[in-house]
Design a protein around this nucleic acid. Structure first.
Lengths: 385, 385
DNA sequence: CGATGCTGGGTAAGCGCTTACATTCCGAGC
DNA sequence: GCTCGGAATGTAAGCGCTTACCCAGCATCG
């Protein structure tokens, strides 16, 4: 309280933004012992606690807490003294202690199936932005395609007492279902659904998106169409397939005229699948792909077969990942509204969390299907004469 | 303890993997009140505490803690009872409480400059894997290129009481330096250095890597070489440039014969820069790029100019991101050892954390330079005759 | 002029753990 | 038979916060 005098005598600086003299590496003036930071805060050290701040400011710890949490009125003068002490001591409140005392942790868990997939990378980034914009921190949990690992991560997130979990798993398995049903925290699904569990979810309208792609090539005049579907674990793959079949049917093309090959959702798989498709007679003039990576593989296969894309064969991807616009020809693809899905998911989970604390009503779980958008680039054209 | 009787009377199931009847949404048998989980654990609920587990197992909370932390000997029979209670109650220990009581949080912060850059995405993924393999959870902190935001995130990570922070910022600014100098937790730098702050760091040997690229095109016979350097904020850009200059000098080519253009590190920037380079007379026959995205842009520019890559102009990228092998021609590029850098960084920070707790010696901070590897693909060839 | 209401701030009770220290229970050694 | 020692367990003291509750001080009002 004695050190504070100096500051009180110079009420020039705005208390909200106290200018702390940049403590030089070597103390400039050894006699000036008052204003040195008592604890340098190096790793080993015991961190500054609220009690030390209170002592320094000459108030009780309750008052410090009130200033920091901004929940109760505090006299401006008192507030100033507290903030000053906070600043002088480099005080950083302990998240764990706060959480234990009843505050929310301000952390959200993000469980992903496979961070190596560019689409999920984009989604993760979008969610991180949204979460950060709302003052929440993300814990990254990457299952790497292993559903056992995902289950373990769910437990871990619960242990960390995250306020909510966003699940962006490609395939929600029974292992998840059981956990999610009795989840101890709020859960919102992104890009996936958990059949039978009443959880809010947002997914792309894959069915209609795939139909968009099919309609596009049909409109260009293609009649012999091939489709490369995704792996069995993917929940959206059958949906997309159904959309394609339906669009073809509307154009009077029976399902048996659609050449279908399955593959893993990567470039190599796409290439192999496309090779199989190109070997068929009659050869398809357009290939609709499960995702953009597969489409890139298809383009490689077309080039390797001595054919031209889009001259001989058109290709349509799905997702519109950054790579889509970089390859040549640039991919015509179906874009998912990643940003909007991320925003919805974060908004929704925060609403649930708030509702849980008694603020706001609990809305019934719902599944939102976000429409997709066709992005036409260079990989599609009219079929060869 | 009375509820437990049912279980004790039927010692058929392995206590390690008890088959819990899938609690139906509507209780099937209202009379069967014994074996139902006392707390469903739905979001609102107060979570199960160690005291409840202790009561159920008929032991003190200390014993439960000992079983769970595995730090003190416990009689096998007692351990069994405790684990059984844990399982029956769906007990999940509280991370915050543990942290407050002195345990490490098991969390690591990962501060990145820009998650949208594919290279950083890869790095983040690699670090996540390493951290997870060692039982640590990652908190994602994406600065999105804004150094103010990064600084705010550093405070936030400190508040969360992470055990350590990995900084993978492209440019460590003075704002960081000041914070890092008095960081309250362990910090290891990945892919960057903080001049003047004694912190361990691992970076790619950019200088030598760039020289590798230059030597490669020189070996192919190129003499008129262009270079697209990165943005000013990038610390590695000048290093790479120096490597190129040095390699050229060894081959007897003076620095003034090297055509240099700067750009932002993305596709559009690379394209613009390459256009400028291609407009020069004499036109360079090889372009060394700051990174793979820039190289992709350069390839686009070459195609747009009616030239062929590698026929007329060779292109070399840097980083070997996944995209590099997908474009055509596939990119010749300099690969950074992302996985190894991630492993080293995580190993190192865990070592520091252990040392802090008195286990193991504190090694002096060091800067490791990981060699790069040249990956030759289709974008480089001998210069036109 | 004393009762009343209100406001800012202090006191202390937890939050759910870990762990130092105390206690109990044994068998071994005298 | 009694003490001693060690292993297993219980007891309780925090860890750093938030917050319910209480109290002092002051202005207002009858």
């Amino acid at each position: 309280m004695q050190a504070q005098t100096a500051t009180e005598m110079t009420p020039d600086a705005d208390p909200a933004d106290p200018v702390v003299p940049a403590d030089p590496v070597v103390p400039a003036d050894p006699t000036e012992g008052r204003r040195r930071r008592p604890r340098a805060g190096r790793p080993g050290q015991h961190p500054v606690t609220i009690a030390e701040v209170a002592a320094r400011a000459g108030v009780s710890i309750a008052t410090v807490s009130r200033v920091l949490t901004n929940r109760k009125p505090v006299r401006p003068e008192t507030r100033r003294r507290v903030l000053e002490a906070v600043d002088e001591l480099d005080y950083v409140p302990s998240g764990p202690a706060r959480a234990l005392a009843g505050s929310p942790t301000g952390m959200l868990g993000l469980l992903m199936t496979d961070l190596t997939q560019p689409f999920y990378t984009e989604l993760a980034h979008a969610i991180e932005s949204e979460a950060q914009a709302r003052g929440y921190t993300l814990i990254l949990a990457n299952g790497a395609g292993d559903s056992g690992r995902e289950a373990a991560y769910l437990d871990l997130l619960a242990q960390r007492r995250v306020d909510g979990i966003l699940v962006a798993s490609r395939g929600v398995t029974t292992r998840h279902i059981d956990w999610l049903r009795r989840a101890p925290v709020e859960v919102v699904l992104v890009t996936c659904e958990a059949p039978g569990v009443p959880l809010p979810a947002i997914v792309a309208a894959s069915h209609d998106g795939a139909a968009l792609a099919a309609d596009h090539v049909l409109g260009l005049g293609h009649r012999r169409i091939g489709e490369i579907v995704g792996p069995a674990v993917s929940a959206s793959s059958p949906e997309r397939h159904a959309g394609v079949v339906e669009a073809l049917a509307r154009a009077g093309i029976p399902e048996r005229d659609l050449a279908v090959v399955a593959c893993d959702g990567d470039v190599a798989g796409g290439r192999t699948a496309a090779e199989a498709l190109l070997a068929r007679t009659p050869r398809p003039t357009a290939i609709l792909c499960y995702n953009d990576l597969v489409a890139v593989g298809a383009i490689h296969a077309i080039a390797a077969a001595g054919l031209s894309c889009p001259g001989d064969v058109s290709v349509v991807g799905f997702d519109d990942i950054p790579i889509a616009s970089m390859v040549s020809p640039a991919l015509t693809t179906v874009a998912q509204a990643v940003g909007e899905m991320a925003r919805w998911a974060v908004d929704r989970i925060l609403a649930q969390i708030a509702a849980n604390r008694g603020e706001g009503a609990i809305e019934p779980p719902e599944v939102v299907r976000k429409p997709c958008r066709l992005v036409i680039r260079g990989s599609t054209a009219a079929p060869p004469a």
